[in-house]
Design a protein around this nucleic acid. Structure first.
Lengths: 344, 344
DNA sequence: CTGAAAGCGCTTACAG
DNA sequence: CTGAAAGCGCTTACAG
């Protein structure tokens, strides 16, 4: 192999081998159709010239497939590598990519103007959109590209499939495990919208919640409340900026200080841990003084004895990857309430 | 915008707008050069037809840049989302990508045959190779492509830059903080080679270690030993399969059971925690009964009181991304020994 | 301000 | 078993 950095083309290899470019192409793509002696000669010339094989971009253009899928993350990309749920999901996506020899293109979006261009500029065969707000402009762009699109968690939009658990039903069931026997139930919520403004509200209107996953979980909790004779309009809902155990500590403290809840449905295990941490700081017993529950059944949930909605984000990642590649895969993901000692 | 899924080309938009394709191209690439009325008309037609803008693959071929960098991970990709060090590194890479509007293409390799093809098939402008073994065939492939290549941690190969701390010097210094006063020093090591075979050895020859990062750290420890009058040929070295706290527990137990070490240099904070865990299980006091140190200064290191080599994997990720994009960036990464209460 | 020409580097039916 | 032809969808100097 000669010096790197050169820009050798297939045409050049063909010329030096005394064959046509298509024969060289066949050497790479259908070598069994090429005479052994020709194959040998072409390979020798390619090696001598340092030809690295067909240019992937040219090949993609010609074949009209890039061999990659794009994952649109509505967060600073560091998030993808921090959030435990996002990680398990991406690991599932990655597994399919590896099985199929497919590339995985991460496309961070930040809610700013460049987003749409970056999404459009990605050379991919299909898109996975990590759960976002209803009004995210990326959704229209990505569904207008004529490529398979799947949205994890929602929102559901025309031209895209959704892979998700039934957040509303799971919220209803989780509240039914957490609230009975409580006098001051409360919710510890993921962000309502992209502004990620933390806040403490009482009985907020779910229609004002921009993230459908969050909205549906809240609706499910309200469903239970109505069935159980609790007026959701009086339900304290603390909203954090990020799904992070440490960062959520202050808001968990605020929730206890303001409302002294004795049952908290948290919209994720990390948030539930933040509630457990705050309870511990106050010397409260779980579940006697306060019942706590979360979502995801994350690796620490068993050790923490947390009642939680178990779902496989890994498998959902796999499903999304398959759909983005044009396959069929289930959109309704299974979930079960796993009841442990953090609820009564 | 009309129905999605259609395959509208720029030529079609041009025809329907009554202009040439290059004018349409200018509408997207240099709109200020186009007459306002033309621009308006072309945009209207594009919207009406549902033309999603220039095809990224065709654009990449023509421009000879793809606007993406590839990150080659020599692991099942799930690793990238689990290992704390890899995550911080990738977060740094991702940050540069976001700043520059660049795509991030993750390319897992498994040591099997398809690796080389997948690496070559990625449409990227430059490559970042996550630390690998000297003999990894991917290195030759990737440096033969005429694109910028940077290897994190090593090995150093012609045609690629390396971004790394000085592992040997840091190993020497860390041992100097950990071994003094010890009578039975030991090493708790990352894998030696791609087979990831766990084992317990005594004074292994560093030249037999395939991962240069691991080899250099071991060489550094040996350097200290010689200076301190310890014969490295008698040094117990336990080698784990993965840099994972929980998974390493069994090997940490084996190390204690076999050698009762009173000072352990672990090649990473996760491994150091595994040693601390094993020490706790035995009721050993740290550092009195056993001194422990690691690498990386990971987020939990302070809480654990761990003496460790602090380095910014995040910044190293940034440097690698810049180099892969053709910029200059420092290859020698800073490090410092952070001494805490886990050593005497 | 707009267009004719050339070409990025390849692959794919189709002949022969 | 090999090649001539066409074309994937765009962009870029260059004219005018």
């Amino acid at each position: 192999m000669s010096s790197a950095g050169s820009r050798i083309t297939m045409a050049e290899v063909a010329r030096r081998s005394g064959v046509s470019p298509m024969t060289v192409s066949y050497c790479y793509n259908q070598p069994e159709r090429v005479a052994p002696s020709t194959l040998r000669r072409v390979r020798a010339v390619a090696a001598e010239l340092g030809y690295p094989g067909p240019d992937p971009t040219a090949r993609s253009l010609r074949r009209r497939r890039t061999g990659a899928i794009g994952v649109v993350l509505g967060e600073h990309l560091t998030y993808a590598f921090e959030d435990p749920g996002a990680r398990r999901f991406l690991a599932g996506v990655a597994e399919v990519c590896r099985e199929r020899g497919i590339g995985l293109n991460l496309i961070p979006t930040t809610g700013e103007d460049g987003d749409v261009d970056r999404v459009r500029a990605a050379s991919v065969d299909g898109y996975i959109v990590w759960t976002t707000v209803d009004s995210d402009p990326v959704l229209a762009v990505v569904t207008g590209l004529g490529k398979p699109v799947v949205v994890h968690g929602g929102p559901a939009v025309p031209g895209a499939q959704v892979v998700s658990i039934d957040n509303r039903a799971s919220g209803r069931e989780l509240a039914a495990h957490t609230f009975p026997g409580a006098r001051r139930p409360a919710v510890f919520s993921q962000p309502f919208g992209r502004d990620r403004r933390p806040r403490l509200e009482i009985g907020p209107d779910p229609e004002g919640v921009e993230f459908p996953v969050t909205r549906d979980r809240l609706l499910g909790v309200y469903d239970h409340c109505r069935e159980a004779g609790i007026d959701p309009r009086g339900l304290p809902v603390a909203v954090v900026a990020r799904n992070d155990r440490v960062e959520a500590a202050a808001m968990a403290d605020a929730l206890f200080d303001s409302f002294e809840p004795d049952a908290v449905v948290a919209m994720g295990d990390q948030l539930a841990y933040a509630v457990l941490d705050a309870a511990r700081r106050r010397g409260l017993r779980v579940p006697d003084d306060v019942a706590v529950a979360g979502w995801d059944d994350d690796p620490d949930a068993e050790r923490e004895g947390l009642t939680t909605i178990a779902q496989s984000l890994f498998d959902q990642g796999r499903s999304c990857a398959l759909i983005a590649l044009g396959d069929r895969a289930p959109g309704d993901a299974p979930w079960t309430a796993t009841v442990r000692r953090s609820t009564r």
